[in-house]
Amino acid sequence: MDGPPHDVPEADALTRPYWEAAARGRLLVRRCGACGRAHHYPREFCPHCWGEEVTWEEASGRATLYTWSAVHHNDLPPFTGRVPYLAAVVDLAEGPRMMTELVDCPAGTARAGMPLEVAFRDGIPVFRSGPGGGEPGPGALGSTAR
């Protein structure tokens, strides 16, 4: 691949803890001290009450599948080498909704509401079938998993 990956934003002072935790296999969300609600993607303020008392919290890694789409054609690197893949939106157990990729999910087995668990591919959180949702896999994904 030429140049930097296009599927990972450049970390800044706010998002650096998120990406550093992901590189270590931990998923973080932000939680508001004023209203108590969690949110994702990382922001300096709460999108629910506009409170500025937001802190990092480790997420459980559990989620449910909200929706997904099979992508069969994508000309943008690094996605070209990954097609077909399942682009997904998941509901984290902590409440926020997150865009991600569904991995280790055989064609035709994805279903709305299925339990998922986080896995990490090259420091990027992705999700796969979790307990009660099929074959949960062990640990983190290697860099060659697609």
Results as ranks from 00 to 15, higher is better:
A70R: 15
G108P: 04
H72E: 09
Y85I: 04
A23L: 10
E53T: 12
G81A: 14
T109M: 09
E57H: 13
R62N: 03
C105R: 10
H72F: 12
E53Y: 01
G33L: 14
E57P: 00
V8F: 07
A140L: 11
A145D: 11
S69E: 06
A63M: 10
G113R: 07
R111I: 07
V90G: 01
L14T: 02
L28N: 11
F45H: 13
A119F: 01
G132E: 03
G61K: 05
E94K: 09
G133T: 05
I124F: 05
L28A: 13
G139R: 11
G132Y: 04
E44M: 04
R111A: 15
P77G: 02
A11I: 05
C49G: 02
V90T: 02
R128D: 00
A23F: 05
F79S: 03
R146L: 12
G25R: 08
V29I: 15
G123K: 04
P78M: 05
H48Y: 14
V29H: 14
G33W: 14
C105S: 12
I124P: 00
D122S: 13
L141V: 00
A13G: 04
P131L: 03
A145V: 10
S129Q: 13
P4M: 10
M1C: 03
R37A: 13
P78A: 05
G81K: 05
P96D: 07
E58V: 09
R146F: 00
E135A: 13
E20V: 12
P84E: 04
V118S: 02
M99N: 06
V8C: 03
W19V: 08
C35V: 11
H6Q: 14
H48D: 12
R82W: 06
D2R: 11
P77L: 10
F120M: 08
V90E: 04
M99D: 01
W50H: 12
R30Y: 09
M98Q: 08
G130R: 03
T67P: 00
T100A: 15
R121V: 14
G137Y: 00
C32S: 11
E53M: 01
A119S: 09
P84R: 03
A112W: 02
P106R: 10
D122E: 15
P115N: 09
E57G: 01
V29L: 15
A88G: 05
V8E: 10
P5R: 15
L102K: 09
D7R: 11
A112V: 14
C32F: 12
G133S: 04
G3D: 09
G33A: 14
C105P: 00
C32P: 00
I124L: 15
A110V: 09
T67R: 10
I124W: 01
P17M: 11
A38Q: 07
W19E: 06
A13Y: 01
V90D: 02
